[in-house]
Amino acid sequence: MRLRIGLVAAAIMVAAVGGTPAWANSAYQAFGAKGRPQDVRRTIDITMRDNAYQPRRIQLRAGETVRFRIRNEGELLHEFNIGTAAMHQQHQREMQAMFDSGMMTPTGLGHMDHAGMGHGGGAHGNMGQGGMAMAHDDPNAVLVEPGKTAELVFKFTKPAELEFACNIPGHYQSGMVGEVAFSK
């Protein structure tokens, strides 16, 4: 009982200072997991422009492991993030905090001090509001700077109402979102 009350109190405290508890970032586990490259049977090429994806719709099958090859042909930093509409809404707040902290700029990754962040020196770790750790390292998302290409391997364990989106401030609202459809 004490542990449950402690966890609830910690979640309330984290929310009050503007951070997100680490276990909230694993919402993607409801529909998938990090994929293993050796299990990939298909590669989907995604092109990002300012502010659109091509294609705007992808077709998947439950149980499928897909390699996404994402090329940013725009002039701005963009994200490819697979999730539910609610997950994107939450992540947009986190991305705004990353911009506000200087962790990101409109065209790339800003200065990040990784010392003592507890992220193993990863490319996207930083501290956010209230000293809460912020990271951009979930297996369902990748940031791609202008002119660069990135890959993401993800296993879709079960169908869900998903979309892929860029959660950089203002991009989703400008139409940088695509539909994920599952075959029956």
Rank of each mutant, 00 (worst) to 15 (best):
A15M: 12
K184P: 14
G74Y: 10
T157E: 09
P169T: 07
A9C: 15
A11Y: 05
N167W: 00
I44K: 03
M48D: 04
G102Q: 05
A135Q: 01
A135Y: 00
H136I: 02
I58E: 00
G178P: 08
T43C: 09
G128Q: 05
A86S: 15
A181S: 07
R57D: 12
E179A: 11
G170P: 02
K34P: 06
M13V: 12
L162G: 03
E161G: 04
V177C: 06
F68Q: 00
E73V: 06
A115C: 07
P106R: 08
A150S: 14
A86D: 14
N126D: 13
F31C: 02
R49G: 15
D113L: 10
I5A: 10
Q29F: 00
V153L: 12
Y172S: 08
M103I: 04
G19Q: 07
K155I: 01
D113Q: 13
A97G: 15
L152K: 03
N25H: 04
D39M: 12
P139T: 03
G102P: 02
T107S: 14
A160I: 06
G6V: 05
A30R: 10
M87I: 12
S183L: 13
G6H: 02
F154C: 01
M132H: 06
G74Q: 04
R69H: 09
M87N: 08
P55M: 11
D100I: 08
I82T: 01
E79A: 03
G63K: 12
S174T: 04
G147S: 05
G32F: 07
P55H: 07
L60K: 04
M112H: 09
A22V: 12
N25A: 01
Q173F: 12
M104T: 03
S183M: 13
E73F: 00
V142P: 05
E163Q: 15
H88C: 06
Q59Y: 13
R57N: 07
S101M: 13
V153D: 08
D137H: 08
N140S: 02
Q29N: 05
M87W: 14
P37Q: 09
L77G: 03
G121N: 10
R61S: 15
G128E: 02
L76R: 13
C166S: 10
L76T: 14
L77I: 09
L7T: 03
P139Q: 06
E151F: 04
I168T: 14
I46D: 00
K148V: 05
Q89W: 10
G83I: 11
H124F: 14
G122S: 07
E151T: 14
T65F: 12
H171C: 08
D39K: 15
L162N: 01
T65S: 08
M127A: 10
Q90D: 12
H78M: 09
N72M: 05
P55R: 06
H119W: 00
R2C: 06
Q54R: 15
M117V: 10
M95D: 01
A62L: 08
H91W: 11
A135N: 00
G122R: 01
R69P: 11
N51C: 07
M134R: 10
A62S: 13
A52C: 05
T107E: 13
R93T: 14
H119P: 00
A24Y: 10
A33K: 11
L143N: 04
E75T: 14
G125V: 04
V8T: 12
H171V: 03
F68I: 02
M13R: 11
V17W: 11
S26V: 12
I58N: 04
M117P: 00
A141I: 03
A86W: 07
L109A: 07
K148R: 15
M127H: 13
Q59C: 05
A133E: 02
